[in-house]
Design a protein around this nucleic acid. Sequence first.
DNA 1: CTCCTCACTTACCAAGAGGTAAGTACCGCA
DNA 2: TGCGGTACTTACCTCTTGGTAAGTGAGGAG
Lengths: 127, 127
Amino acid sequence: MAKAPRNGPYICGIDAALDVVSGKWKGLVLWDLHAHGIRRFAELRRALPGVSEKMLTQHLRQMEEDGLVHRTVYAEVPPRVEYGLTEAGEALNEALQPLGEWGLERIRRGRLTVVPEPDAPLSASSL
Amino acid sequence: MAKAPRNGPYICGIDAALDVVSGKWKGLVLWDLHAHGIRRFAELRRALPGVSEKMLTQHLRQMEEDGLVHRTVYAEVPPRVEYGLTEAGEALNEALQPLGEWGLERIRRGRLTVVPEPDAPLSASSL
DNA sequence: CTCCTCACTTACCAAGAGGTAAGTACCGCA
DNA sequence: TGCGGTACTTACCTCTTGGTAAGTGAGGAG
């Protein structure tokens, strides 16, 4: 509670950015919102396999606090809430792009990202 | 236990990359290793303010498993272990660059990323 | 002789992230 | 009448993350 401004004294930008995307579903929410533009709560929930309502709201709220998404509530009779990326959210998504490509590469290589043993006097794996 | 190959079935590349950099000090280790090239254990420890030995080894080991850093053990009398980035680690660092810049922007703006609320009356949502 | 350094490992503990399930209030459909 | 969908909130619980502190074993400094 009351930890609204989540900001430890960051050491570098990576730190600050990682803080904002850390969370099991944050990255996926960003991704989906980027791909679909505007999404309703239930749409997001269905789009993310396995997310619980609690976590989705929690993440969405934090991302709203962080200025990544905007939340529009329509005072309609079946409640309707729409989420979309803000400018900062879009920018973050773009900043995340190369990281995503790196991740894809990693997946392609089947986690075996080769480690050309330089000239180690002692085999590190034996310890 | 035995969760050495940390790889959930990733949904997208962001997922996979975030998995690898998630950890309180991973980003900083990457950063420092990139800046200084080769570092000894104690050097890294001194470079990261507040890191415990346990966490540093733990992160370093995981990053080694993930092929981000290489570890060279010299069978010397005062033990000497050197860490450096692998190609994958360097690539990750480059992929992290835009994210770092985004984070710097966020820091500069003093967490106030957009949210254009000109002169609205104080409400619960404005907190 | 004792402490410090190196690079760790291990045990224990607290905080938090995240999961499950239920409740809420109202509506449309069968 | 009862169910499902809407967008949540709340309580409870577990598992993970990370912190503290101590131990290890050999060498060098005081």
